[in-house]
């Protein structure tokens, strides 16, 4: 099993619904976020191109954050989801420095926190909160090892990219372009 997410940058309008849904679902402390909206404006007037996308931890296949963790608090569970066990984390910050996407943040309680792909929901067969609330239905979540899953199907027919592939982390959040 290999969970992955595909996000359609052509459909995303940057409404931040996913951000709020995540904050509510996962009790993210006020002022912090596990996912966020990025808007890229490329070119000069009048040749402008805009891309809006929702970013989060990429649950990398080759995850530096897991490798550098001295306690094993950062670990990989079934489906390639990268998680942090709060009461094993000493808050040393190594994993925060190691993530090229800056997807992690220090939780005010001391441990490190980040997107879990809503591990507690997908285990029950539900979709991650962000995917479920998106009003434009621009996110797809599922198992890449299953050729019939929604993500596999959409990645077959659409062009896509990942973020900073040159960092070598093998990110598993795909952006449809």
């Amino acid at each position: 099993m290999r969970y992955a997410m595909a996000i359609d940058t052509k459909k995303c309008v940057g409404c931040s619904d996913c951000v709020v849904a995540c904050q509510t679902e996962n009790n993210v402390p006020i002022g912090y976020c596990r996912d966020w909206i990025v808007e890229v404006n490329d070119g000069t007037y009048p040749q402008l191109e805009m891309e809006i996308r929702s970013e989060r931890c990429n649950h990398c296949d080759n995850s530096p954050c897991v490798r550098c963790c001295p306690t094993g608090a950062s670990h990989i569970v079934e489906g390639g989801i990268v998680l942090v066990t709060a009461n094993e984390c000493i808050g040393c910050g190594a994993c925060i420095s190691s993530c090229p996407y800056d997807a992690r943040y220090p939780h005010p309680d001391g441990h490190v926190d980040k997107c879990t792909f809503c591990f507690h929901r997908v285990g029950k067969g539900q979709q991650p909160a962000c995917v479920e609330v998106c009003p434009t239905n621009c996110m797809y979540f599922g198992d890449l090892d299953d050729p019939k899953s929604e993500v596999s199907e959409i990645l077959k027919i659409r062009k896509y990219k990942t973020l900073i592939p040159q960092a070598g982390t093998e990110p598993q959040v795909y952006y449809l372009i």
Partner: peptide, 23 residues
Amino acid sequence: MREEIITSGRMNDKIDPFLNIWH
């Protein structure tokens, strides 16, 4: 000239705008 402007909605303490986790 070609320009790229990136706007991010993320403002996590000690992470944005620059990583500042180690003092």
